[in-house]
Design a protein around this nucleic acid. Structure first.
Length: 350
DNA sequence: CATACGTGGAG
DNA sequence: TCTCCAAGTAT
């Protein structure tokens, strides 16, 4: 969970996760669906899938939990950093770790100005860290190095005056001699790749209760959710029906695309299977992914089913589309991605 | 190998 | 609003 994610963000997820799956064996029994739900909102969802696959692999292997770096590296989702962290912290293997914090600390300590993403430079950091690690307390040392980066040797305003190794810091020494050099010049900034712009239309489809199907309560309605493909962005997660637009599109065009999608995937057709009680343009927002800038147009559609479409209320596979309907309560308690939560919040204000 | 892969807090 | 980046990994 901590990979590329702040501790503060992780804590609640970690606690809920450990409550639900206290051991590897519990996790190995879980379904990907459950795992995705628990992870929803944390991001980098492949981590969740790998965690599940890793648990299953270890349990199936029957050799217990891997305890050395070489074995840990075979587990899905465990790379150089995580293998080193587990081996040193949990099992006292004398190995280093290199994460973003360590790179920053070492780049400053040794005044390394090369691009820290560069493969050769990364190797240099690992070698340096390996030379430094305390053979008697590798886990504590590694955590100390990371903690130094997280608390004092921070990206923007490092607290050099409180730093226990400021006397040995090359970057600090250089910055004192040359006023043009700043501590924060280390490590070098790597060129960030450009975000591509994407556009999508989302339709929150609310299927209102019918007097003849649902007794009494007219407010009893359900929402249509679609399962995203198992590969790629937000793989296997639930969202409101959406279509990618390719470029900016006016309301008319967006509705046309959406109508087509709803008809094809759900046989939701105003002329035949339902009548429209409300259709409203709710607004738009931009959702930022690490590599995509997604503009989302949101619309609310409340329909009233004509025929006996009660089978609609259980999950089923449509044409290349897995979908289900959930009621308001289920929707609130369901694990949703950040973007889907935004959409739902917007619609609730209507 | 360069890139895909989320989200949110801080300044 | 924009930039930066966090206990990185897989392909």
């Amino acid at each position: 969970m901590l990979q590329q994610t702040r501790v503060q963000t992780v804590i609640d997820y970690y606690n809920r996760w450990m409550l639900k799956w206290p051991t590897l064996h519990h996790l190995a029994q879980a379904s990907l669906e459950e795992v995705n739900e628990m992870w929803a909102g944390l991001g980098y969802y492949r981590r969740a899938r790998f965690l599940l696959e890793g648990a299953r692999m270890i349990v199936a292997g029957g050799d217990g939990f891997p305890k050395i770096v070489s074995s840990l590296l075979k587990v899905p989702g465990i790379g150089d950093y995580t293998a080193g962290a587990i081996a040193s912290i949990a099992f006292k293997e004398v190995v280093p770790v290199v994460d973003g914090n360590v790179i920053r600390v070492l780049a400053r300590l040794k005044a390394i100005s090369a691009n820290p993403k560069d493969k050769v430079t990364v190797k240099k950091f690992w070698k340096l860290a390996a030379q430094l690690v305390d053979p008697h307390r590798p886990g504590d040392f590694n955590q100390s190095l990371m903690e130094l980066g997280a608390t004092l040797c921070t990206p923007l305003n490092p607290s050099c005056s409180s730093c226990p190794v400021s006397g040995e810091c090359r970057a600090l020494a250089i910055s004192k001699l040359d006023k043009l050099v700043l501590i924060t010049d280390y490590p070098a900034k790597s060129i960030k790749l450009k975000q591509r712009h994407e556009f999508s239309a989302v339709c929150v489809v609310e299927i209102s209760g019918r007097q003849d199907l649902i007794e009494g309560d007219q407010s009893n309605s359900v929402f249509l959710l679609v399962k995203r493909p198992d590969e790629g962005l937000l793989a296997g997660l639930w969202e409101f029906p959406s279509v990618m637009l390719g470029k900016e599109a006016a309301l008319t065009r967006r509705r046309k695309e959406m109508n087509c999608f709803l008809k094809k995937s759900f046989r939701l057709d105003p002329q035949r299977t339902c009548s429209i009680l409300l259709r409203e343009d709710v607004g738009e927002f931009t959702h930022i992914f690490s590599h995509i800038r997604l503009k989302v147009y949101v619309e609310l559609l409340i329909v009233h089913l004509k025929d006996d479409m009660s089978d609609l209320f259980s999950m089923r596979d449509g044409e290349n589309t897995t979908w289900k309907c959930v009621d308001r309560e289920a929707l609130s308690s369901l694990g949703l991605t950040s973007g889907v939560r935004k959409v739902y919040t917007m619609v609730q204000k209507v």
